[in-house]
């Protein structure tokens, strides 16, 4: 028993090391003075020069700004459409074409991005030929593409959240005289709110992170941050990208740690209250 525990611990430690060593090495070398990136310049490091360089790089900052805008819009669109799809699939029962809708919402989860990218581009080209919209490609086409593939993730999250609580809550609201729309806004929506938050964040991240689809459906002047990074790192390692990576990891890590701590505290508070209710509650 003891031995197996040890084995498990070792596997876990090795696995986590595998996941984190590359990230840590990027962080460390972002403070390296040497241009050679992976050779530590003992005399002049640590330094913040790459961070300074990064902040002076208007091209990267501009791309980052485009990415933020695209990601925020995509996340909002994906949450709205994904929530509708999730509610329709879990609560609306049988309707014609339900299986097809269900297939269309899960397919993007595993579809290789390159296929989605090509299909999207060809659609936009064909549309432009046929109706003149979208004239050329840019932020709007990237946003549409990102909404489409991110909404699949939101749908799954909303679906599993809805499946987790039983529909008698909604029935009770109807029974108490609430019309279906009221039920949706006062009961369903508050209950799935946590799923919407995580769905939004996930959709934002997916969009913020995507390079393949964006490459296909972007146009001149609408390069997103990942596209900029990709074209740079294809040419080789560059130290300011290390600095950029460090900043991004930092933001994400702080966010994830804070939200985990918050959720943990909420959970503890809740279980304490439940215990108390059980002890003092019985008449």
């Amino acid at each position: 028993m003891r031995q197996r525990g040890w084995f498990r611990g070792a596997m876990l430690a090795l696995g986590l090391a595998f996941l984190y060593v590359p990230i840590l090495s990027m962080i460390v070398f972002s403070f390296n003075n040497s241009r050679l990136v992976t050779v530590w310049d003992r005399d002049n490091s640590p330094t913040l020069r790459w961070y300074v360089r990064l902040l002076e790089n208007d091209q990267l900052l501009g791309a980052a700004w485009i990415s933020i805008k695209v990601a925020a819009m995509s996340a909002c669109g994906a949450v709205i459409l994904g929530t509708l799809a999730g509610v329709v699939l879990t609560r609306f029962g049988p309707f014609r074409g339900r299986a097809f809708l269900s297939a269309m919402t899960t397919a993007p989860l595993v579809m290789p991005e390159i296929i989605t990218g090509i299909a999207m581009l060809l659609l936009f080209v064909a549309l432009e030929q046929a109706i003149g919209w979208p004239s050329g490609r840019g932020m709007s086409t990237i946003t549409i593409a990102h909404i489409t593939f991110a909404m699949a993730y939101v749908t799954v999250i909303v679906q599993s959240r809805l499946a987790g609580f039983d529909d008698s809550l909604e029935e009770a609201a109807l029974d108490l005289g609430a019309k279906p729309a009221t039920v949706f806004f006062r009961i369903t929506l508050p209950l799935i709110a946590p799923a919407l938050v995580s769905g939004w964040l996930l959709a934002f991240t997916l969009s913020w992170d995507d390079v393949v689809i964006a490459q296909f459906v972007s146009g001149p002047g609408s390069s997103t941050l990942p596209m900029e990074i990709f074209s740079r790192v294809r040419r080789g390692v560059s130290p300011d990208i290390n600095a950029l990576a460090t900043l991004m990891v930092l933001v994400v890590a702080v966010g994830v740690v804070l939200s985990t701590l918050y959720m943990r505290r909420e959970e503890q508070r809740r279980s304490r209250e439940e215990r108390m209710a059980h002890n003092d509650g019985n008449p």
Binding site: E273, M276, G281
Partner: peptide, 8 residues
């Protein structure tokens, strides 16, 4: 509701 006992 989660702060109540079953009877409540």
């Amino acid at each position: 509701p989660h702060q109540l006992s079953g009877g409540q």
